[in-house]
Computed example of a mutant assay.
Amino acid sequence: MRFLSQRKRFKDLSQQEILALAISSEEDDARIYRGYAESLRPAYPASARTFDAMAAEEDAHRAQLIDLHEQRFGPTIPLIRREHVAGYFNRRPVWLIENLGLERIREEAASMERDAERFYLNATKHITDSATRRLLGDLAAAEARHGTLARDLADSHLNKSIRTEENAAAHRQFILTWVQPGLAGLMDGSVSTLAPIFATAFATHDTWTTFLVGVAASVGAGISMGFTEAASDDGELSGRGSPVKRGAASGVMTTLGGLGHALPYLIADFWTATGLAIFIVFFELWAIAWIQNRYMQTPFFRAAFQVVLGGALVLAAGILIGSG
């Protein structure tokens, strides 16, 4: 609360401070757009040029605001930024948006322009100088146009074939970085933990012991798969993307795949827990087949036959070993 009390309310800003805030905001947005451009340039050069152009637009706005400030208040601009003003819109960290892909970056750019438009419309209500009001109104209109600027600039830099190619590249990258490691993890977690879990279940008929074994097997497999995936390839030559992302996808999905049929053993009744666990196993296997069909273009019935047959064999092995 002490930190919040040190932030100024927008309505308490002087006209000079409003101009200074607009200048710093335009500078921040230009830097963000340049950051997007640099992150996209290796894989999406045409989209990178779009964000270069948007950064140049923000630089032009900043120059107009600085000229106006010098005319009205002189060359010394107060240091005031968005974090100094209570309720002022924030920008998400660039690294977070970069990690979410090309389309997410485009959506964030459109959101940034809408935020800027609202700021200028609010600012005009607190300005009495006619020249300043006119400039802020013009900038509000410009930002409103910028709601479609990403699309307009994209149209000028991205013809249909380039846009299709970039979207296809983004889709391929999503599959390589997230889907393939996650699918491998889900398959490993769902199938490799079947034997120890069901062997324990039928050997002990103790649901709590089975649950503990299932959690241990799932978490252990998740850690192993995650580190193996991350260490196997740094992504530089293969183009498979960040090893941290791939490791996280593989590790988390491996753990979830095992926990799915371990959690039913929290139920005290052995046969109820086992029946539910077997039902979940077949649901997991069908989900794997669907993902293979949806993202890997594997014919559904072939994927289902391979995955369900393999899972059923491992399940049967676990039950037979535990019953022996």
Rank of each mutant, 00 (worst) to 15 (best):
A195K: 02
L40R: 01
M296K: 06
I97M: 14
I80D: 06
E229D: 05
V281F: 13
F3S: 00
R81L: 02
Q292W: 00
A199H: 00
V307T: 02
A22R: 01
H84Y: 07
A86R: 13
R302T: 11
A56Q: 04
A273M: 09
T204R: 07
F282G: 12
A199R: 00
I175N: 10
R151T: 05
L135W: 00
R91P: 07
P93E: 10
I66H: 13
E26C: 15
N90D: 13
L186Q: 09
P181H: 03
S242H: 12
S192M: 06
G189K: 06
S232I: 06
L65W: 02
P75K: 08
I288K: 02
T209D: 09
E27D: 12
G87V: 07
S323G: 01
I321H: 08
P45E: 01
I288S: 10
F89K: 06
G239C: 12
I162C: 13
I127Q: 04
F300L: 08
P45F: 01
W95Y: 02
R104F: 11
I23Y: 05
L237P: 08
L186P: 01
F119K: 03
G241P: 14
Q6I: 06
V179E: 00
R81C: 05
Q292P: 12
G220Q: 02
A317W: 08
E113N: 13
E103N: 07
A154W: 00
T207K: 01
R92S: 09
P42V: 04
E26V: 07
D129F: 07
Q16H: 11
A262F: 15
R7E: 00
A141P: 11
Q306N: 06
V252K: 10
D67R: 02
M225N: 04
W271K: 12
N293Q: 14
